[in-house]
Design a binder for these strands. Structure first.
Length: 287
DNA sequence: AGCTACTCCTGGTAGC
DNA sequence: TGCTACCAGGAGTAGC
């Protein structure tokens, strides 16, 4: 499922083919993929616009359209569970799961495909209305141990659902949250404000390292859903320590990885490397 | 504030 | 072989 590394990989691989292109037309094959407006309205809004910039914010991809002087418009999208983007030659038979096709110059088109139909495209003048609530980018300079320690200290919440909360940090999903917590040797049920300075420091480093390594390996592909725009599977799934490895031996200590459910999400932990938080330890110390 | 349940949706698979 | 039932899961929302 596309998280930050998969969206980053996608954006990097479509950027050079898109920037400078003018949109020649739009075909919506599944109206539900377009948020907030009709297929016709999206076509009228996009047709004729020039793509100036392609970027990412959290798990959203962003196409900046038109000239800043005349007020930028933006095509923002979220791939959710099974969305994909790629560029192909105009005239090919369309993909079975193609939901929106955007005509470009040079007889090419940008395809937004999505098996499970959870993904969405938004056309907007005000992208902050769509992703303004997002927390900091974990690979930016704003994401520091100091910031994280302060932010965690204010939350009485289990660390895993907090890391999955896009308003807290942008871009982490189920896979990279489990991997980051394992790398930091933190149990997913630990209360955020009980983490010590050393643990917060490890967590900061782990999140950055896990995401960077996943980007270097073009993300993770488990099922047939995620492929890069160039058609390759990701390679990071072969390097995972816990996600999807329930019952298999921990790569660090050999203890079988356990799958539990936290906040309705499958969650993978090494019971030895990530000891269960003992909420009574304060009371015990007092005795 | 933070938890759970529910919704959207399909392909894959377990069970019969 | 072919059927049904169930599950995964990002994020928004409702209700407690």
């Amino acid at each position: 499922m596309p998280e930050l590394p998969e969206v980053e990989t996608t954006v990097r691989q479509i950027r050079s083919a898109l920037v400078g292109q003018r949109i020649t037309g739009v075909r919506v094959r599944w109206a539900g993929s377009v948020a907030g407006r009709s297929a016709g309205a999206l076509r009228r809004a996009l047709t004729g616009k020039r793509i100036e910039r392609v970027s990412r914010r959290g798990k959203f991809f962003v196409l900046d359209l038109g000239q800043a002087a005349r007020g930028m418009a933006h095509l923002v999208g979220h791939l959710r569970m099974s969305g994909r983007l790629w560029i192909e030659r105009e005239g090919l038979p369309h993909d079975a799961h193609a939901r929106v096709e955007i005509g470009l110059g040079r007889r090419q088109r940008l395809v937004f495909a999505d098996v499970r139909k959870f993904g969405r495209l938004y056309f907007t003048q005000q992208p902050e209305e769509i992703f303004g609530h997002l927390g900091p980018e974990p690979l930016s300079s704003a994401f520091t141990p100091t910031w994280l320690a302060e932010a965690l200290g204010r939350r009485r919440r289990r660390i895993k659902p907090l890391l999955l909360d896009q308003a807290f940090i942008a871009g982490l999903g189920n896979i990279y949250t489990d991997e980051s917590l394992f790398a930091a040797r933190i149990h997913p049920l630990t209360l955020a404000n009980t983490l010590g300075r050393a643990a917060v420091s490890r967590l900061t480093t782990s999140i950055r390292r896990v995401l960077s390594a996943a980007i270097r390996h073009e993300g993770s592909s488990f099922d047939s859903y995620y492929r890069t725009p160039e058609g390759r599977s990701g390679r990071y799934q072969d390097r995972l320590f816990v996600y999807g490895r329930g019952g298999h031996p921990c790569r660090r200590c050999g203890t079988p990885i356990v799958r539990i459910v936290v906040a309705q999400r499958g969650t993978h932990v090494c019971p030895r490397c990530q000891p269960t938080p003992r909420l009574r330890c304060r009371a015990q110390r007092r005795r």
